[in-house]
Nucleic acid binder design. Structure first.
Lengths: 228, 228
DNA sequence: CAATGATGTTGACACTGCAAACATGGATGC
DNA sequence: GCATCCATGTTTGCAGTGTCAACATCATTG
């Protein structure tokens, strides 16, 4: 499975570092032409290798995408782990925004992580684990808030689901607005809300998060003191 | 279920009503095997016609999916138009839930409507129009609430975006929970939140909507009197 | 220095979307 | 009644795909 013990530097064998090249080319390709027409053969062509060379590194087309998504989840988890827990309300806010910001900053990976491209996670151990880590962090942040009384008493899992649903939805809107604004609707997530609404939300995802927190926090007045 | 009438929509030439048959077979196929491996040729085979016969009815594979999505948006718009506007708070609640319930009841179409399958709506006039209608209705409902003072003063478009983001996210969770529960990983929307959280939200989307409304409504005590 | 196993290549198969030319037969005008 | 038209369905064909199997290469290691 793992084949990275040859040299700590990339150079080795015929191509040099085909695996890495494929991942990067794949990203670029998705960013510029979407995920639909993406083909392993095209990636191989672009990398200057034979059509089936990628199969030495990825079991299937699916596996390549999954690897990219796994990278994404690990990065997202890291960024969510970076928020401080000392102030639960601030942590809630930061955690939500870090999610949205990750999406905005990594549209392609986010697309792979949460889109329907990969479909079934089962069979991709690392992917499942990395995704689980992200969610666990959100859960932890909310649990801390419930424990401290900064959040109104609530069912943890329902609360988590609700928060996740909103944040995920906001991320999608932000991404869509961004994609359309960049004049190349390369990634075509979320067509439905008209551009104005998407832009309105994308311009201030903080306010959208606050709208939800307003109803969840024990003392809404605290929301005014949050650092953005 | 049988079509022996020669209405304005379907004609009865060689096949009988290929267009309709294709739409139905397509739905069934997506429901049972997902959207990834779906091929026009397979549909044609299943319908007992030649591999390229579908092209007499749909310009492309894309167009077939788009037609299905358009149907979906029209149905959703109808169900959102069916909510009474006399009580703005109740209307908000009903509208949100009717969205979620439509998703739960029509997973395949919802998938096509809001998933990434169709990608670019441009070029599909009817699709765009139908989707716009849905959003317009949500906007209208919220506008009424703002006008009447039942909702706290807010920016309409941001508010719309926020509500839409939550509702859309909830619908996705509900769908995912449902798909997993039915043991058929048929539609693979939203893998990330663990099953428990999905189930928790799916079991009571009303409460999730209420969590948001809590922060948006001028008089939260009114929420206790809502009819479910 | 030879053996080994990871890496890349060639060739092949079944499948896809889609276009163009062709065939069929119900609807329509005379 | 008959000829015609045109929507519907067929055949043929091309370019492209994912993936497998057999083969070639070459850095690393015993």
């Amino acid at each position: 499975m793992n084949a990275s013990q040859h040299g700590d530097d990339g150079r080795s064998y015929h191509h040099g570092d085909l695996r890495k090249t494929l991942l990067e080319t794949c990203c670029a390709h998705i960013a510029s032409q979407g995920t639909e027409g993406l083909s392993l053969r095209a990636l191989a062509r672009e990398a200057g290798v034979s059509p089936t060379a990628p199969y030495r590194h990825f079991d299937s087309r699916h596996a390549l995408l999954a690897a990219l998504a796994t990278e994404g989840f690990e990065e997202l988890a890291a960024s969510m782990r970076a928020v401080a827990l000392d102030d639960p309300v601030q942590a809630f806010f930061d955690c939500a925004l870090s999610y949205i910001r990750y999406a905005a900053g990594n549209p392609v990976k986010y697309h792979l992580m949460f889109g329907e491209v990969i479909g079934d996670f089962s069979g991709h151990e690392e992917l499942t684990a990395a995704a689980g880590d992200c969610y666990a962090r959100l859960e932890q942040v909310l649990q801390v808030g419930l424990d401290s009384g900064d959040l109104r008493p609530d069912n943890l899992e329902e609360l988590c689901g609700t928060v996740w649903a909103l944040v995920h939805g906001l991320a999608g809107l932000t991404l869509a607005a961004q994609a359309k604004a960049s004049s190349k609707p390369i990634e075509d997530i979320m067509q439905v809300p008209p551009l104005r609404a998407q832009q309105a939300v994308a311009a201030a995802p903080e306010r959208a998060v606050l709208r939800l927190m307003e109803g969840l926090v024990a003392d809404p007045s605290r929301l005014h003191g949050l650092k953005h």
